[in-house]
Simulated assay, not measured.
Amino acid sequence: MTGQPDRWAELTGGQAGEEYAQRFARLVESGHDIHGEAAFCAALLKPAARVLDAGCGTGRIAIRLAELGHHCTGVDVDSSMLAVARRDAPTQEWLLGDLARLDDLGLDPGFDLALAAGNVIPLLAPGTESAVVRQLAAALSPNGLLVTGMGLDAAHLPLAEPPVTIEEFDHWCTEAGLTLRQRYATWSGDPYEEGCGYAVSVHFRHDM
């Protein structure tokens, strides 16, 4: 590992939980549907599936998936975000931890789906991205799914330039035993084309 802070912490100082939650509350009040990622994942899952929300933040997606009948575990390194998740859904499992060291948390493997939405991959600590992908792959059941959403240009990132290319990400997935199944440009399923600024990717873990 690099020992560097993750890019999210550099942007927020690890104190963004309440502000982040309020931003989505305002979207709800204005009539926006904030459950696109959850709906996307739910369409891929069988009933009562096990879901690992990696970089769960305030728990928005995991809480919605739990409402739909799935068993969700949320992991995040930002305690301010987890404080909101624990307040809003105290009976769900929320774990404070580094995604590059998921195995330190003692999670039972065999998740049907691991989710890394909200630019989790580009906002990791530099140099840890491949380790995180390996950890997420290891948490999956055979044929389990890794679902990710990430910006590929500055217009879709809170950064001046993208730190990760889609080719690099696919390479890390291949190294971790994952195969690309589908890729879209949005959580609504719009077609992905080369040069898109955002990628929603579905990889599956093939038998090792």
Rank of each mutant, 00 (worst) to 15 (best):
L146C: 01
A199Q: 04
L115Y: 08
M1G: 12
A154M: 12
V147H: 05
L11Y: 14
L180N: 04
A160D: 11
S201Q: 11
E161T: 04
W8F: 11
T12D: 04
A39G: 07
A100G: 08
Q135S: 07
Q135A: 07
A100F: 04
A160C: 06
D108F: 09
P158V: 08
L115M: 14
L105C: 10
F111Q: 03
H35M: 06
I121H: 00
F111N: 03
G59Y: 08
D98M: 09
V132Y: 04
T73M: 07
E175A: 11
P122V: 00
S79M: 14
D190E: 13
F24K: 12
G195D: 01
V200W: 03
R183V: 02
E18K: 12
D112F: 08
G149T: 05
E18P: 03
I34L: 10
D190C: 03
G74Q: 08
A85E: 02
G144L: 08
G144Q: 05
A89M: 06
V84F: 02
R181M: 10
S188Q: 14
A199F: 04
L95G: 02
V202R: 12
D104Y: 11
P163D: 04
L146T: 00
V147G: 02
L145G: 00
Q182N: 13
A38H: 12
G127T: 04
A9I: 05
A125E: 01
A116D: 00
T2R: 15
H206Y: 15
L123H: 05
L45D: 01
H71R: 15
A38C: 10
Q135P: 00
S130Q: 13
T174E: 07
T128H: 07
Q182F: 11
L152M: 10
S141L: 12
S201K: 13
L124Y: 10
C41V: 15
H206N: 09
E37D: 14
A116E: 01
E37F: 09
A139I: 02
S79W: 15
V164D: 01
A100H: 05
T186H: 12
G13L: 12
E67Q: 15
A42S: 13
V77N: 05
A9H: 14
L52G: 00
V164I: 14
D53Q: 09
G36V: 00
N143C: 09
R64V: 02
A85F: 09
V77L: 15
D98W: 13
V28A: 09
G118S: 12
R205W: 07
D88G: 04
A199G: 05
T165I: 01
L107Q: 08
V200G: 00
A62W: 05
T2E: 09
K46G: 10
L152G: 03
E93F: 06
R86E: 06
A16R: 12
E37T: 01
R23C: 02
D153T: 06
P47W: 15
D108L: 14
H206E: 11
G57F: 09
R101P: 02
V132E: 00
A176V: 01
Y192F: 14
L115K: 09
